[in-house]
Design a protein around this nucleic acid. Structure first.
Length: 855
RNA sequence: GCGGGCGUGGUGGAAUGGUAGACACAAGCGACUUAAAAUCGCUAGGGCGCAGCCCGUGCGGGUUCGACUCCCGCCGCCCGCACCA
């Protein structure tokens, strides 16, 4: 008998699948379709274990759905624009295009041996002119519908990458890619009107039943809905055009505690005043320089500048409040102006004490804490608990007892009734700035004409392709200094004009690729017949790191594409179900240098806990994210060469639940490989055995176990319980290896085993299927069905508890009556001993489960 | 500060309110072998006076015949957001 040779088996069956063309997806009206998609990779040049895990999960779903009668679409492509290609060009010379397409070819070669059931005929890269040309067409459609616009705005400028970043791409005040401190610059940029969809994007989250709650919460927080009052303070002798200041407050119930007005340094009023006030101009300039990173904000003092202006309180016109420009007020949020209520906001209180402003309580705690001084008496700000505290809204609306939210609503109503402002709902979500000052991206298809202004390019002139003759020997955007590419004719008047040299944020590319996969060669962005059939993505799988950016942008894009007629109404939420998988981690070996900084080592340089070269003891951190710098990367290619793809697939699915991190261990991978070899030997033996029956009991027992396994594995695969499904397959293999059943029953069980393993280890499964004389490819065999009648045993072993503690077991027929079960349980020695001649207080019989005797 | 999640053997982890630790890793013992590898079998939460009993799912309480699971209060760790008015 031959040994398990993954290399031979895998090559053989990949070729067989290829020949049969079984993964090519074609529209078939009337057949249930299933679209499974994993987040497409960036072509860095190497696949990593995270890819293996991600695509294996998707492949399990795709193969399982195909086996259960679905018409499956499972495509693959490349998120191919972006900075690394330009960085490589700058560092090593060469062209971003060559670098990118070279990497794609390499990665495709690394990925194919995994045996994924992908329809490669649909492959595309976002840097293909055929793709980004359609993206330009979308841009023009969006422009037409007012979904994208140009404005002058203060933007986040990344000084290292020399480009603008969207709010979502700034983390702790630093660029998400470069890590550089972001500066604020005023530029004219293109924006998607995503904020118009804030309410819908928030409300629709509730209907995404098959999304992780965590992701929905993160998106909801990002969209940031708040309810408050917007109203104005009138200014006494304000400058020209500024007789009032609009403020927004989520706490209008504290209005009677107001003690100052604060405006942002970027507020129009501040900008007006600084023209005649050099000190204020200096103060504002200082504020604008200040970064927004967490450390800086922690340290930064709350500073204000008294403009000398006074404002009138809306409920008491004799009450005047000073107007400050303050460094902690954001122009981006609300109206860029606030009223400060020191008694009930710690930040306002700090500010008030610093500038000697009044502190006035408006609430009385329901149960005042005698040990804590009131804010008026020098204590901390009193912030009433949101839901519990009954409090007074002192000073207006009478001494009204209200709790939390209701008090706010009551205050809004009261203010509206008295002609002071109106209740409004605001969102934190800002419009998405998409202009990037980069070369390697999708050109924005507009032209700047001296006579006509900004003119959209004509659709028949698309794609506006990137020029190949560019150099990266100096920083900045090579399109800006290209001698001829910018020159063009104005699409409106025909006179000489200049192209926009900004390109689109690469997140645009990934915001609609899922729709393009339904008709990747279409001459329009989508083909409605195909999109209507294949959309939505039934199961989307990817990393949690995309919880906000990519998934929010995609949800917006799907809506916008629907408005333009490129997607059906149902696809406004493009991903019916989302699964976020964990990382693959691996241990790291480290020592410390003289300064206590960690130094990382490759596993082969370590022996028995000591560094081979120096004999230093090595610390082992068991579970860290794989990264080059930590020298703990496991290369999938070498794993596949050593063990085969089936082993890699089996291992990344076993051990840990898919949403959690899984730790890669060599021992685990070896064990996975041994197990597959064992299954191979076992099934090869069974295939040789004569197909005869054995004692009835043994055959029935094996087949019962088989049906239970079919049931459990199906349930596992159906609900992303891959680790549990694999554990069940281990157990079934153990049963099959030890059974006394005859050849016929064993053969039937082995066939089921091959089928159940097929989604996870498809090559081995084909080989087993063939050995067992299965018809055709197991990849196209229909999923086995569990026979309900085989799932219940004739007799069951019931634990007998005394006062909730297990004390005995009884074997009873499964259908035995409750009263008889009770009788037998009471007859056990353990229960007799416990009763000591007395009567039980109570006996609980849960049929098929347990008996509990209370004494 | 706000929001969310998690806490079970040496390790990864399993358990519709019903026998806690399935399955696997690592470990130990044994069989086969001249030997090793491979393979197969066995042991395995802790403890005690070991046919039996006690303790045990972060800690303290509660509900229940019965709690890893539900409720209340702590502790610890992780993640997301945050000068957001």
């Amino acid at each position: 008998m031959s040994r398990y040779s993954a290399a031979e088996i895998e090559a053989k069956w990949q070729e067989a699948w290829e020949r049969a063309g079984i993964f090519r997806a074609e529209r078939a009206e009337g057949r249930p379709k299933y679209y499974v998609l994993e987040m497409f990779p960036y072509p860095s040049g190497r696949i990593h274990m995270g890819h293996v895990r991600n695509y294996t999960m998707g492949d399990v779903v795709a193969r399982y759905k195909a086996a259960t009668g679905h018409n499956v679409l499972h495509p693959m492509g490349w998120d191919a624009f972006g900075m690394p290609a330009e960085n490589a060009a700058m560092e090593k010379g060469g062209h971003p295009k060559d670098w990118t397409y070279g990497n794609i070819a390499d990665m495709r070669e690394q990925m194919k041996p995994l045996g994924l059931s992908i329809d490669w005929s649909r492959e595309f890269a976002t840097c293909d002119p055929e793709y980004y040309g359609q993206q330009q067409a979308l841009f023009l459609d969006f422009l037409d519908k007012g979904l994208v616009y140009r404005k002058n705005a203060v933007v986040n400028w990344d000084p290292v990458d020399m480009t603008v970043l969207a709010n979502e791409q700034v983390e702790n005040g630093r660029g998400w890619r470069s890590g550089a401190l972001v500066e604020r610059r005023e530029l004219t940029q293109w924006f998607f009107r995503i904020s118009d969809y804030a309410e819908d994007l928030l409300a629709a989250l509730e209907r995404l039943d098959n999304w992780p709650p965590k992701v929905k919460t993160m998106q909801a927080n990002w969209i940031g809905q708040s309810r408050g009052l917007q109203f104005a303070f009138s200014l006494i002798d304000g400058p020209e055009g500024h007789d009032r200041v609009e403020v927004y407050s989520t706490r209008p119930d504290t209005l009677m505690g107001a003690s100052f007005i604060g405006v942002s340094p970027d507020h129009p009023l501040a900008r007006q005043l600084e023209k005649d006030d050099a000190d204020l101009a200096a103060f504002n300039a200082e504020c604008r320089r200040m970064g927004t990173s967490e450390e800086e904000l922690e340290k930064a003092e709350k500073k204000g500048y008294d403009t000398g202006l006074r404002a009138r309180h809306p409920f008491d016109t004799s009450w005047e409040l000073p107007v400050y420009v303050a460094n902690f007020i954001l122009m981006d949020y609300g109206t860029g102006a606030i009223f400060g209520c020191p008694a009930h906001d710690q930040r306002d209180l700090d500010f008030a004490r610093k500038y000697d402003l009044p502190v006035r309580d408006t609430f009385v705690p329901a149960e005042p804490d005698a040990d804590v001084a009131s804010p008026e008496a020098g204590g901390p700000a009193y912030v009433p608990p949101k839901s519990e505290a009954v409090r007074y809204v002192r000073g207006f609306a009478g001494p009204e007892h209200q709790t939390g939210e209701a008090a706010v609503e009551a205050a809004i109503r009261f203010c509206e009734d008295n002609g002071v402002g109106q209740g409004v709902t605001k969102y934190r979500l800002r419009d998405w700035g998409l202009s990037r000052q980069r070369y390697w991206g999708c050109p924005i298809p507009v032209v700047h004409c001296e006579a006509c202004g900004v003119v959209p390019e004509r659709k028949e002139n698309l794609p506006v392709t990137l020029p190949d003759d560019v150099s990266f020997d100096q920083p900045g955007n090579p399109l800006d200094r290209h001698p001829t590419w910018r020159d063009c004719a104005c699409p409106a008047c025909g006179k000489a004009a200049q192209r926009e040299t900004d390109t689109m944020d690469t997140f645009v590319d990934s915001s609609w690729y899922y729709a393009r996969f339904t008709a990747p060669r279409s001459e329009t962005p989508t083909d409605r017949a195909e999109a209507d059939y294949w959309m939505n993505v039934d199961q989307y799988i990817g990393g949690i790191e995309h919880a906000i950016l990519h998934l929010l942008y995609s949800r917006f894009f799907a809506r916008a594409m629907h408005v333009c007629g490129h997607l059906p109404e149902k696809s406004q939420e493009p991903f019916d179900a989302l699964f976020t998988q964990g990382m693959v981690t691996h241990e790291i070996y480290m020592t410390r240098d003289a300064g206590g900084r960690p130094v990382y080592h490759l596993p082969e340089d370590v022996a028995q806990g000591y560094l081979k070269a120096t004999g230093e003891p090595v610390e082992v951190v068991p579970s860290a994210k794989m990264s080059k710098s930590k020298k703990n990367v496991v290369d999938p290619v070498s794993i596949i060469e050593r063990f085969g793809a089936d082993t890699a697939r089996w291992f990344v699915l076993s051990d840990s639940p898919p949403e959690r991190d899984v730790e890669w261990t060599d021992a685990g991978a070896e064990a996975a490989h041994k197990h597959l070899a064992r299954v191979y030997r076992l099934v090869a033996e069974i295939a040789q055995e004569p197909a005869e029956a054995a004692p009835q009991d043994a055959d029935t027992a094996l087949l019962r176990e088989m049906h239970k396994t079919i049931h459990d594995v199906t349930a596992g695969v159906d609900s992303f319980g891959f680790n549990a499904a694999i554990a069940r397959l281990y157990a079934f293999t153990n049963t099959l290896a030890r059974t006394q059943a005859g050849g016929a029953a064993k053969r039937e069980a082995a066939r089921a085993l091959a089928q159940l393993m097929a989604p996870m280890t498809p090559h081995l499964a084909e080989e087993l299927w063939q050995m067992l004389g299965g018809e055709g490819l197991v990849a196209r065999a229909s999923w086995p069905r569990a026979d309900e009648s085989m799932l219940v045993d004739d007799t069951v072993t019931l634990p007998v508890q005394i006062n909730g503690k297990r004390r005995a077991e009884i074997e009873v027929p499964a259908e035995l009556e409750k009263s008889e079960v009770e009788k037998r349980a009471l007859a056990t020695d353990a229960v007799q001993r416990a009763l000591d001649g007395g009567q039980p207080k109570k006996v609980i019989v849960v049929p098929g489960r347990i008996v509990n005797v209370v004494v």
